[in-house]
Design a binder for these strands. Structure first.
Lengths: 185, 185
DNA sequence: GTCTATACTTCGATAGAC
DNA sequence: GTCTATCGAAGTATAGAC
């Protein structure tokens, strides 16, 4: 996509305005969905003109990818720290509830953009491996020999937490009480 | 939304063109995502002008809701039949893999539209109850006394099946083999 | 039932001035 | 670094002719 004419000017990576655009875009994706992320909306919320977005990012897709890198990078660091707690299983369970909205939107965008799909795949694979590691640690802490794959355990816990959160956002609650009770094993 | 001026003409419900528009929209949502559903695209694929869409539906949102009603209605009927098989658990497991893409897109739209959210909630609640019924029947067929809530069981199976399918669409496969093996219990 | 014509909005993007 | 100016494309929607 980005290999046509290098005549175009682009802002530097460590600009403050650039960072503000990324932060604002992340917030918009979380609160209003990816459709809210337009050059106009972003720039005017910062008191600037919409062309500034193309100065820093070239295309909107480039901006989205920058948002994903930042969001996932922050999450990654946070998970890494929290998994050192005494209850790593509970940590991955609660995490599934927190970042759901943004993750859902990222996934929706990845469905239709090859570049975003590649970006997301990389992080999701790694995230799952970290979760599996947490499961292993949980069992070791309690002296239990694992009977089922830690990867599968991580998958199921994360999947259920994620689905619960998405459905709550859609006001769907049928079976939630029962499922939440079940997961407290 | 729809209570301003009743001066506008609208096509009849049993029109063939109207049915074609709904079918085409359903296919577009499944194959290319909700962003592909525009009046222009729909009409021109049928060899008509884009204004025809507004003659039959007024707004695009009305069209989407018609698509949801039709899709879910068909699914509902299918599930009702298949759950009478000898392996109802396997049926709901496989079902999660099939309708995922459309369901994902509907959910994304529901996140940003009150009317669509209401429509989806209704069907998802009912769908879950049907699944729970399948779980109950599965256990009865085998003379097992349920130790965990059928609703929760249905939720977990459906959630994992759905997540697996979404991730496959995103080329994410970490832990899938392990999870699929686990679910074959 | 479908068309033409039209209005209005918003989008992404580029070139060049200051 | 941010602006003005401008482009072309696409979107939803309405009114009225045939």
């Amino acid at each position: 996509m980005r290999a046509k004419k290098p005549t175009r000017r682009l802002g530097v990576e460590n600009s403050e305005t650039r960072a503000q655009l990324i932060r604002l875009a992340a917030r918009l994706i979380r609160d209003e969905g990816c459709a809210a992320v337009t050059a106009r909306r972003l720039a005017e919320d910062l008191g600037l003109k919409r062309q500034i977005v193309h100065y820093y990012f070239g295309t909107i897709e480039d901006l989205i990818i920058a948002v994903i890198r930042r969001s996932v990078g922050k999450l990654h660091e946070r998970v890494r720290q929290e998994l050192e707690s005494d209850e790593p299983l509970r940590v991955i369970w609660q995490l599934g509830n927190i970042v759901t909205t943004a993750l859902f939107e990222f996934s929706a965008m990845a469905m239709r953009s090859k570049a975003i799909k590649v970006e997301m795949k990389h992080y999701m694979d790694e995230f799952r491996r970290m979760q599996a590691q947490a499961v292993t640690r949980h069992l070791e802490l309690r002296g239990i020999t694992p009977t089922i794959s830690p990867l599968a355990t991580a998958f199921v816990i994360n999947s259920v937490a994620h689905t619960l959160a998405v459905e709550k956002a859609l006001d769907v609650t049928e079976g939630h009480v029962e499922t939440e009770a079940l997961m407290e094993d």
